[in-house]
Design a protein around this nucleic acid. Structure first.
Lengths: 211, 211, 211, 211
DNA sequence: AATGAATGAGAGTTCATTCAT
DNA sequence: GATGAATGAACTCTCATTCAT
């Protein structure tokens, strides 16, 4: 039934694949009911595997959440890094790229966004140090970018760049939250494209030195 | 033993007071360990009462959280309403008032902010409808304000005012989160006064129609 | 129903009594099925209390076993100490007293003996240090007694007194085990009285200096 | 990969050998952590085999313990039988032979002694009938020997020979336990030789008819 | 009002055992 | 023979909630 002719390849693959499969199921149920309200059996049911198998791939419930965080928050960090490594991009372009990524991600995988934004950032106070550091990394990297642009005179200098970075991400996060809550309604694809641009513009505008 | 002779006299008072006392204890322990990680007995211990007593004053654990939300989120809503009712305030003044209130609140009562921001607003997806409505109210009211200023031409018209309201609150919320996580460090009183102004300015700048 | 007119006294009492009640139930089921084969619910059922109440009185399963050990092994230690504090007893009298106590205890409370001997003293290797120390105490105390009698020339000197103490207790322990296993059958009361004497005599004889 | 070219030839051998290999690993981990605390995977790890393989050679966990018992307890029974079959040995010689065997065995293979003494005799109450019989056999055989010597007037007649046999084994067992616990310390080889003799003498002395 | 003993459903986790490869 | 993924019953422990006093 579950077999395919490429036995060998499958075995190695399936280990990783099964793990991903469970992770996907976890994202789904976490996003639907919230981490604390989910039982391991919910995950197992959603993934259509036996209870115990979840523990074959993950130490415990916490580790599942961590894995989700690691794999996905890492993407954001990488985007910010990538943006940072392109010296010929204007600040506005950089901000736009990040906005596009984050809001676009919601379109593609709202569940992941739900879990990462709601469940992890919420419990961030209770995270262990290395986790908080990973969490911080993306923010700090944007702060670095902004600082550089401060020196170029493109960004106002009377506020710590880190606070600015937080404000930027905060704006986006609450938009996502609004989407997730259903109090904000993402518009159709075309309109959405314009919105992202406007949002980036607004963020940019907020940073400019006062006239 | 723990009684004092004036017991009777204070009965009415003490009923309300005891409730507040328990609520304060709850805020303290929720902010320290997180709602889900707290047991009723943690609250009772913190309040120095028997844990059965908690059930005299509150239906259940959930209701405690709700009470915290109601009493404190209400303040934000009220601030926004108050601001809205002063027609002679400029938009920038209005924003400044809200910023002052929110960031100042963190100074005064970080525990409350912690609980309201982290435990409630972030798990809002799982709240019941009336709760979400209360939650939304402050946002919507700010959106209304912004919409009015859009009509006056003071605010750009190419984005839904509600999204703008979310961005505004999001900026502030993540600053608070940074404070709470200890990754952002509130400055001394004087400096802090300036910062709040700048932050309000930035928010205002982001809203202005593009040149 | 469960009430009695002496409310106050009852409350304090019943806490301790309930604890003992659960402990008794635990002894019963441990002795019947063995510690590892017992579930907490077996204890609760036997004691006719709710599951969770067991955890009201005991930290965990292990602590129940520890309590049984502490309270009962302590009695043996005390007997040996008492015997040691009576300087006018002959060695044979001392040994007889201990034999009487240990074999008599089986008559009175075979379940306790079962649990203490089988479940604890036999798994002593896995006990934590303080437990082993308590365990050792009775043995060491007998060794001290024997050593004193060695100096008096009443006990052979060519073997360490501690080994002798172990041999003595070992003899008795395996008799108890035989009873417990049903491979050895305790005789009627009268005969049993004689047997204990003879056993003590044999132990005494083994210790005497070779002619 | 792990194969070597001589695989085939050793097939028969290796079947039995692998079984022993696993058994040895089981003895090691059982002795270290105790039967109930050991997982099949602990055994497999120790033996460096996949844990599914354990089930090729043994029905289940219980059977592993049984095998250890069978192979090793059998040796004791055989020693007692052998001793019994030599009519020209004095009683003291017989006892000495058994003492030498048992205490010597600890020197050679303390792990085995650990498991047999601690894990099996401890759970003996819960053993099935045939197991108890095997367990009893050595004891009964020594009782037979003693009974014969009672009839010769060399052993006191006022106590059941079976109780005597239990006492004898009990003495030795608790010495072994003391070694295992580290509360009794085996002496150097030479001294140890003397000790065994003395211990045998003491056992013999205990059995002699009272003067 | 106040206490804390009592309840028991629920959840996480373990691990012996099976089975497809 | 050998592997280790898969299964799921079993079990400990937690804790919100109730209730007798």
């Amino acid at each position: 039934m579950k077999k395919n002719p490429m036995k060998r390849k499958k075995n190695k693959h399936s280990a990783t694949e099964k793990r991903r499969h469970i992770l996907k199921a976890a994202i789904k149920v976490f996003s639907k009911k919230g981490f604390h309200r989910c039982r391991i059996s919910d995950i197992a049911n959603e993934a259509n595997v036996a209870y115990g198998l979840v523990y074959h791939y993950f130490e415990n419930k916490e580790e599942i959440l961590n894995s989700i965080f690691d794999e996905n928050w890492g993407m954001l960090t990488k985007v910010v890094e990538t943006v940072d490594e392109q010296p010929d991009l204007s600040l506005q372009d950089k901000l736009t790229a990040i906005v596009e990524f984050l809001l676009g991600a919601y379109r593609l995988a709202p569940d992941i966004i739900q879990v990462v934004v709601m469940e992890i950032s919420r419990s961030s106070k209770f995270l262990k140090k290395p986790k908080i550091d990973a969490f911080e990394k993306a923010f700090q990297r944007l702060a670095d970018i902004l600082e550089r642009h401060q020196k170029l005179g493109e960004v106002r200098k009377d506020l710590d760049s880190k606070i600015m970075a937080y404000m930027f991400f905060g704006s986006l996060e609450l938009i996502l939250t609004g989407y997730l809550l259903g109090t904000l309604h993402p518009s159709d694809e075309e309109q959405f494209g314009k919105e992202k641009k406007i949002i980036a513009q607004m963020c940019y505008a907020s940073l400019m030195p006062p006239a």
